[in-house]
Design a protein around this nucleic acid. Structure first.
Lengths: 347, 347
DNA sequence: GGTTATTTGAGGTACGCAACTCATTTTGAG
DNA sequence: CTCAAAATGAGTTGCGTACCTCAAATAACC
């Protein structure tokens, strides 16, 4: 005999009884299976809502049997970001396997739309969820939509494709990141006036373009004393960035600020240090790596805008899992913050 | 007939077979139950390790039956921090109930050691886990240790009691927070020299003392041009803080920086604004609230050091859950970061 | 009214583990 | 060697859900 004494958690059986239907019907409603009258569906859903009933995740997880497979589609090549994500996923391996989750990395050329699109197509039906560092291009958009239609949960990582039907975007607001960089450069330069240089990978990349936009916005409105020079495009390569930067420093002795939008930080820093002006020029860049950490500590770099890659990796996994389970997403938790890292709050 | 075909996840049964023991013995080993020879224990553990086997959380969770109860022991009174934590826990309610977790708030006077200690004692045996905003005092330490001995998992929140046997501390490194504040004030003041004021709640509070320590450290070593004035103790009250600050501003026309270590921000800001010097004085404080948000936006405050309370609440719950389940803790994930919040990266 | 289609009920099995009982084997002490 | 104690095996039950089958009831149609 089951006593209705304490507030022992409700089960599906209780819901069924309260709604005056059988367990099978509740199950049909819960999983959108056919063969239930609209009226009955409503009654069951109301009962669930009234009791704010939540199915026990553990029960559901156990009953479904098979493990879930997630794919992370990431840039190929000796990419530091990919290595970091991979290492953070590695740290989660215990957590993952205790939940019977398999996460696999799929390396591909994310900068070539057709290659990326076909890589995505190849995943159809194989995975329950896909996280992808996506290029915003029609064929990629179509591939993402196909995955979604195939029943997979799709999350864009770092770089979004807002026009697709992806379920979620895990990454920062790049315009706000650029604004933050602008505010930092402006404030740290102080009352001085002079020129400000920008080095980006390419203005064709969505995230870089957005950061530059935000940066210029702040510069124009809040720091009229600073004159922003045309953007140098270093293609995220160290050598090229260094050359461009060296030349620019030579031509403009009155540079007081420098914003490095993407990678190629090593080259930019080398040019700055070789010029001997690293103490006079405020240098703000992105991401906390071994390199930027060193530069911050030695004072050559003043601040780094960072989007914690560990958080991104974990958030992507959590979001995919929540989507697959049909759980609500804790959006506040999964939001990637724009971190300002200076020497004294290095993580 | 079970086929050993694919890499279908192992179960306890597989481990038992491989180790050449029965399921009951594996269970005894796993739960540190008596009645197993040391040699057998070793053999079982080795088998588990060799296969990097992780018990399926869902199975374990389902089998244990009863729900888990966690208590959050927090400051009573109209405390903004408590309200925030409570609201963030509210957002998690679906997540919590789907895992059959009950989180209860226990309000108490956390600033009175004996009251806090007896509040903690009262929880013994009732809860599987306790998160507590703790005062570092011998009687509190003893109460925490008693809870731990009673089998509860204990996490200190925001304010640590390192000498106790609490399982984990969820909060920031306050010395580093102070250093960060110092670096910000110093950098934002720029080449000017002058005096820097500090307002704290009380130097007797561990976190405040640590922040001041870190702040002074940076000031002394990196900004010799800035002269730090003696600490004002505003008891985290607006009125008192305002009076003290007004008087100080009157006496020192050459104040260029201001660090507000704790609460009472409203009062400090009012004194600063009334003096009409908010544009000349760099003002750095703590926490992003409705108030500090407004001050940042209007430019009266230059930066806020923040420890995301939502993250703290969620981390505390996750850590308690992991501890209760015997899962490893993702320390990287649970680490509370020191956020620098300026106008352009307001969350 | 009869027939078919749709909807619902009843029940079972399986998932992986915890927690227990009780029988049996092994071990160690005397 | 004997006998009690310790160690281990074998088995059962239940947790809450998913997913399945088959029968029964109800509704819709002509």
């Amino acid at each position: 005999m089951k006593e209705p004494d304490a507030t022992s958690p409700l089960t599906l059986r209780d819901i069924a009884r309260q709604a005056g239907v059988s367990l099978a019907t509740v199950d049909r409603v819960l999983h959108n299976r056919p063969g239930v009258r609209p009226d009955t569906i409503r009654r069951v859903k109301e009962t669930i809502a009234r009791n704010s009933f939540q199915p026990h995740v553990a029960g559901a997880e156990l009953a479904r049997g098979r493990a879930r497979r997630f794919a992370f589609v990431m840039p190929s090549g000796p990419n530091l970001f990919m290595q970091q994500i991979q290492s953070y996923l590695g740290e989660m391996s215990g957590w993952l396997s205790a939940r019977r989750l398999a996460v696999e990395m799929v390396a591909t050329d994310v900068f070539d739309a057709s290659v990326l699109a076909s890589s995505l197509e190849a995943l159809a039906g194989e995975y329950d969820g896909v996280a992808v560092v996506a290029l915003d291009h029609p064929s990629v958009r179509a591939a993402i939509n196909d995955l979604v239609d195939g029943g997979a949960k799709v999350v864009t990582l770092v770089s979004d494709v807002p026009s697709s039907r992806r379920h979620y975007y895990v990454g920062i607001d790049n315009i706000a990141a650029g604004r933050t960089a602008g505010a930092l450069v402006g404030r740290l330069v102080g009352p001085r006036s002079g020129k400000v240089a920008i080095v980006a990978g390419s203005q064709g990349l969505r995230d870089h373009a957005e950061r530059i936009f935000g940066f210029n916005q702040v510069m124009a409105s809040e720091f009229p004393g600073l004159n922003v020079l045309p953007v140098l495009e270093g293609r995220d390569e160290d050598e090229r960035s260094e050359q461009l930067m060296s030349r620019l420093l030579g031509r403009h002795p009155d540079i007081v600020g420098l914003y490095n939008v993407g990678a190629g930080t090593q080259g930019v820093a080398k040019a700055l240090i070789d010029s001997g002006r690293e103490k006079q020029v405020v240098f703000v860049g992105h991401d906390v790596t071994v390199l930027t950490r060193k530069l911050l500590l030695q004072g050559a770099m003043d601040a780094a805008i960072s989007q914690n890659p560990g958080h991104e990796a974990r958030a992507a996994v959590r979001v995919l899992l929540a989507l697959a389970r049909g759980e609500p997403i804790l959006s506040e938790q999964e939001k990637i913050r724009i971190d300002i890292v200076m020497r004294d709050n290095l993580p």
